[in-house]
Every structure is written in C-alpha cells, then in structure tokens.
Design a protein around this nucleic acid. Structure first.
Lengths: 259, 259
DNA sequence: AAGTGGTCTAGACCACGAG
DNA sequence: TCGTGGTCTAGACCACTTC
C-alpha cells in the first residue's frame, strides 16, 4: 500500500482535485508503476474521510487524462504504456517497396515488434465526397476501398482505409485481400503510375465510440488521424489512405528542408 | 426548447447513456447547432424523471467527447468549431524569413486571421535533459528559453517554448522579448548558422490541468505536441521548439517525396 | 461470499452570471 | 435575486472478478 497525503480543507482546490493531484504525483514519480493497482475506492474513502462520489470524481479525472484504467470487479490500474512506434517520413521509400515489404512491416521490423493485420475488408463503392475530391474524381466515381486493423505485439494501434480509383485497381491484386509483395504501392506502380510524392495531413481528436471499441481504448484516450495522398510523377493522385492511430502508440517524424 | 425522447427502463443501456445518446443525436443531426444552449440540468431532470447525478453523468459523457462545454452560471453549450489553421511544411521557408516575417504571422496572414502573441517570458537556464540531448549539449549546459502563447482571433491555440544554446543566443535579440524582424531563426542565421533543415516529431495526448487553463479548453479536448529541431547546414542542432497545440485548431500538412 | 467498480437516488450548500 | 452549473454527502442496489 502506498502512502497518501491528506486533504487540506483550507486549500482553494476542492478535495477531489487534491486527491487527484496526489494520485497523479504517485504515478508521475514512479511510486505507482504501469500496471500497478491504485488503492480501492473504499480505501480512499476511509483514508481521506470523504464520500464515495468525491473519490470517484478524482479517479474520473485521472481516467480522463488516460493515466489510469478501471476494470470492473478488479480495481483501478495505472495504464501500461503501449509500445511507441516512431514513424519516419521516409517509411514509404521506394527501396523498401523494391524489397517487397509493406510499410507497416518495415516499421515493425525496425523496432523488433510482432506486427499483425486483421479485420481486412475489400469493397468497391462510389467514392465519398471528400475522397473523390482528393483523388480528383467526379462525384460518384467508383473506388476500391480497403479497410484493415494493425496490431503491434497483439495490441490494436491503428485502423486504416485506403481508396484507389477503380480505373487503376481493376484487375490487380489491389482488389484481393492479399495485395502481394510490396503492397498496393507496388501494384500501383506496375500499372504505370510511378510514385512521385505523398502529402500527409495530421490532426487529433477524441475517438468515436466505435473507434474505441475497435482500437480497444477507454474513454479519455485521443486518436491521431493521418490522411495520406499518394501522387504519381505526373502529380496525379492515385491513392488516399485514411488512418486512425492510438495517439500514445505513435510519434510521427518528419524531415523538412529549410529551403 | 428541443424535443427530447424518453428513457426505456427495459433497455440494456443505463439511463445516463440513453440520455447522452439522445442529446448527441440532437447535435449530430443539427437540431442543436454550435453555440446553442442545451436544456438545463433541472429541465433534463424533470423531463426524464431521474436524479441530478444521472443527468450530470450524461452531460459529462458529452463533455468528455468534446461535444459540449459547460459554462458556470450560464448553461451547457454545443461547442462551436474554432477556426482551423492548416500548417504547411514549408512554413519556415527562408523566403518568408527574408521578408522579415515570423512563421506564425505568415500563417495567420494567409488565412486572414488576427494573430497575437502574449505571455512571453525569456529566461536563461540549464537545459532540461531531453533538450540537452536534442541540442547535443553537455548536461547542465545553459540555454535561452523562450515561452509564449499564440492566439488566433483572440482564442488561444498554442503554447510554445524554444530553447537556443546560450553560445548562440548570447548578445543577440534572442534574449529580448522582441526578437526583431524574421524572428529567432533570422537571428540564428546572423550568428553564422545558416539553417539547413528541420525535424518535427508529432504526437497527441490529453492536456495537463495547467495546459487546459492556459489554452482555455475543457476536459476532453486533446492537444497535439510538435517538437521541432532546427539544424544548420553543418547539421548542428541550433534550436528546439516544443509546442502544444489545441488539436482541433490545427491540421498539419507534410509533403514527403517518394524518393 | 467478499471485494471491486458501475449506476442511481435525494437531498445539500456553494460560486458564477445575468437581470 | 434567481437560475445556472460545481461540489459534496450518505446511503442503495447491481454486475463483475476472485476465491
């Protein structure tokens, strides 16, 4: 059992905040390490001499910060930091594709993690408006839509959906579950669209309830969205990939020339 | 007053979730538009016939998703989407510095916003361990540390802290509140360190209570952190800038060659 | 069965904002 | 002053986990 402080009733900050601060400090100073169990609600109630709702409010603040996770019937635990994957901006370098490797696997290999992909679905549909816009397609033009989930060491870290114009994807392995060596970018180049550049648009937000479920994250854990558009050497957009990443599982790295 | 549904006591989902779902739907369907006031707690209590804590739990779920903000003494309101700033990866191009413009102002100008900077503080201190590491400095080496807050149209959108080795900054305007035309990058180049490239590391997380206060955001709104390191043409790191951005106020854009 | 967190009730007093 | 949300109390019953 860790040692807790006391509540200062003359303090400006309300009791639940004081409790939250003390628990937060136990975590940040390493007195409570990832995976460790916090004192139970009953223990906190008794120690601080407050009502249950007060303790729960403190715990909820920590849950909101993503510092702890509550497990029904077991207790409240310090969130164990998932493996952080650093995504370098050169991860789509042609050299890697030539070696027959998909980007996610290249990354995983570099960090010694076991990467898996599941929940793969491939359909052909009319392009959503924003995708059609990015691909310079007419409204209602059809695209091949590939969705999948990525896991690192068995933990879900990302869901991704790729859109390729049907005119490029038709008759290739892009419409198959297994896209073959080098992934869809290799297939696109085989169709005569040598890749020239990518743009990536990054932002962050809270996940939808469905994303929370698929990514197996609690409330209070934000996601990053990265929308990548691939252009061929004629600057024609050939693919859009919309990814939702568990934020604390990723650091994105970019190299920018000063020009 | 909008029309609400009722609680189905035979439903699996607990009442507070049903209430949250109904309110969420009012927002997503546009029956409650940004800035609109939700029914007050008392109204919800009366309408649904539940205790206050039940209603508050529903509202809290929406706050956690960043959909609404509570204003003490006034009510709960649908969050109005703040202006989104798109940050292009060429925003530090030398051309802009030559024109005597700082990056933030260049961006603001491009989008027609009124950009302001406040809470500027400049100190000289021993470098924190991670900063010393990035700047290739010995532990305890001194750096000039510049903190400031950026606002777009009066709304806080970012806080930033720059670190420059004292060996470069000493005796320049970098140690002044006003760094002069072109900002600190112009001053660094005047010291003989022509800039060659930048690296940027991006991730997202929940804000600390203090960041929430400075950025004036509620719980449930994530932040993006962007750590930029500037290198001169000899690949010597000359500055580290640590920024914390309100996530929904920014989209970061990067251009990546396929190589 | 015992302990944990999840949900709910029915009150209370306080601090803030607007009229 | 009045209505708003912010905080707190002291109970209650339920569902989940472990033994």
């Amino acid at each position: 059992m860790v040692d807790l402080g006391v509540i200062d009733r003359t303090d400006d900050r309300p009791p639940y905040r004081q409790i939250a601060t003390q628990l937060r400090r136990l975590i940040s100073t390493g007195k409570l390490t990832p995976g460790a169990k916090l004192p139970s609600e009953s223990e906190l109630i008794e120690h601080y001499g407050v009502a249950r709702m007060t303790v729960r409010q403190a715990l909820q603040e920590l849950r909101g910060e993503g510092l702890v996770v509550a497990e029904h019937g077991k207790g409240v635990f310090v969130r164990s930091a998932p493996p952080v994957r650093r995504l370098a901006s050169n991860r789509f370098a042609r050299a890697h594709r030539k070696e027959g490797k998909a980007a996610f696997l290249v990354e995983a290999e570099a960090t010694g993690r076991k990467a898996t992909v599941d929940q793969i679905s491939v359909t052909t549909e009319p392009a959503p408006a924003d995708i059609a816009d990015r691909l310079h397609l007419a409204e209602g033009a059809r695209v091949v839509m590939r969705s999948r989930r990525y896991l690192a060491d068995g933990v879900p870290v990302e869901i991704a959906t790729s859109y390729v114009p049907e005119s490029i994807a038709a008759g290739t392995a892009i419409t198959s579950t297994d896209t073959g060596p080098g992934g869809i970018y290799a297939r696109i180049e085989e169709q005569g669209h040598e890749l020239g550049r990518f743009t990536e648009e990054v932002t962050a937000r809270m996940p939808t309830p469905e994303e929370r479920k698929v990514l197996q994250i609690g409330a209070g854990v934000p996601v990053m969205t990265l929308v990548r558009t691939a252009f061929d050497v004629d600057d024609l957009p050939v693919e859009v990939c919309d990814t939702v990443k568990v934020s604390h599982a990723y650091v994105l790295e970019y190299d920018v020339p000063a020009r």
